[in-house]
Design a protein around this nucleic acid. Sequence first.
DNA 1: TCAAAATTAACAGTAATACTATTATATTTG
DNA 2: CAAATATAATAGTATTACTGTTAATTTTGA
Lengths: 224, 224
Amino acid sequence: MINLLSNLKIQVPDKIYIKDPESSKLGMRIIEDGIKLIDEVGFDDFTFKKLGSRIGSNESSIYRYFENKHKLLLYLTSWYWGWIEYQMVFATHSIEDKRQKLIRAIEMVTREVERDLTITHIDEVALNRIVINEYSKSYLTKEVDNANKEGYFVIYKRLVSRIRDMILALNPKYPFPSSLASTIIEGSLHQHFLKDHFQSITDCNKTVTPMGFFTDLTIKSIEA
Amino acid sequence: MINLLSNLKIQVPDKIYIKDPESSKLGMRIIEDGIKLIDEVGFDDFTFKKLGSRIGSNESSIYRYFENKHKLLLYLTSWYWGWIEYQMVFATHSIEDKRQKLIRAIEMVTREVERDLTITHIDEVALNRIVINEYSKSYLTKEVDNANKEGYFVIYKRLVSRIRDMILALNPKYPFPSSLASTIIEGSLHQHFLKDHFQSITDCNKTVTPMGFFTDLTIKSIEA
DNA sequence: TCAAAATTAACAGTAATACTATTATATTTG
DNA sequence: CAAATATAATAGTATTACTGTTAATTTTGA
C-alpha cells in the first residue's frame, strides 16, 4: 500500500474548491496548516484570517481557493473519507471469505488512524481528530440538501454503500444493511469522541475499542 | 401520563441559565419562540437579535436569561432529554419482563415524537427536529470538558445509563452495555436525519423506522 | 398603597467575523 | 520577454456577539 499510495491522488469533488489546493504551494500550505489550526483551535474558532497569518499569507488569497471555511471543512473531510475508502478497498479486495472481508472492512473504518508517511502535507492523525470533532458540522446545516445535490458527500456515501454491500453479501436477507453500515461509520466516530470526553456512557477505553464493539454488533446482528 | 405531567416541571441544570426562563412571561416567550426560530432558520443563523425582534423584546433582555445562544441550546436539549427520560421511566416502570421493558425503553427514545398538549409553551415536535439537527453542536466544542464538569449533560448521561442498566438486567454478561445504549440514542437521531436528507445510506423511511432497526440490533446483540 | 426593588426596553458602542473589491507586485508560461 | 496568472497588501462593509447605561415599567412587601 505504502508505495502505491505515493502515486495516487485522492480525488475530492471539484465543486468543493474554487482552485485546486493541490495545484500550488500556497494551496498545499492551506491544507497542511488548515488541518493543524482547526485541530488546535476547533472549527468554530478557526478563521481564514488566522490561517493567513499562520502561513504568512493573506486572508483574501485563501478565498481564492475556498469560498468559505465550511467548504474547506468539506474538502478536508472528503479527502479523509477518500483516504479511508482507498485503504479499506485495498485491505479487503483480496479476501474471499465474506465474513472476513466484512470484518476487515469494519476494522479499517473504525480503527485508530496512524500517520501515512507517503503523504507529507497531510497529518492524518490530526485530520482524524477533526473528523471526530467536526464532521457532523459539515452536514448539519440548513443547506444540506443543496450540498448533497452538488455532490459534496459522494465519497462518504460510497464508503457506506461499500459496507452495505459487504453486509448484504454475507446475509442477503438482513433487513437493515444501509442503516447498519451508516451506524458503524458514524457510531464509531461517536464512540471515539465519548472515549475522550464522556467515559461514563461508553465502554471504549484503552483496551475496549470501537472496532471491537462494532464488529461484535455487526456479526451478531446479521448472523443471528 | 397526560395529567401527571401537567404538574411536573422538567428540571434543567440551573447553571445553564442566568435567570430561570420558566419564572417569567418573557422567559417563557424566549423558550417558546426560541424553539420556533431555531427550527426555522437553524441554530447557526439564529441570533438573540432576531429572537428579540420576533418576541417584541430587546436583545439585551434575552442576555439576562442566557449567557449566549449556545447556553440556550443546552437548555432546550436538556429539557428535551428530561422530557424523554420522564416518558421513558413512566412507560417502563410497571413492566416486569426485562425484555419487554428494554424494548419499550428503546421505543420511547427512538420513536417519532408527538406534541404533548399538557405543555403549552413548548412545541416538542419542533424541539425534536432541533435535537436531530443541532444536538451534536452542543457538545462538539473545545469547551466540552468544562461544560461536562459543570453538569450540563447530566440528564442525557442519566438517560443513557438507564438504558445501559436495562441492557445489563437482560444480559449481565454483555460486554458493551454503555456503548450500545449511547449508540441507540445517538444513532437514532442520526437515522432520523438520514431519512430526511440521505435516503441512500439508510433503510429508514415511511415503513421502516429507526425504532425497528435499533430494537432488532439490540435484541440480537445481547441475546446472541 | 406607596416606595423600593427588580425587570425590561431602548439605545449606544465595541471587537471580531466573514466576507468583497481594488491595486500593486511577483511568478509562471508560451 | 510579454502576457497571463497568482499572490500580497490594503481598505472597506454588514453582521455578529456581545457589554454597558439609562429610563421606563412592573412587582413586591411593609
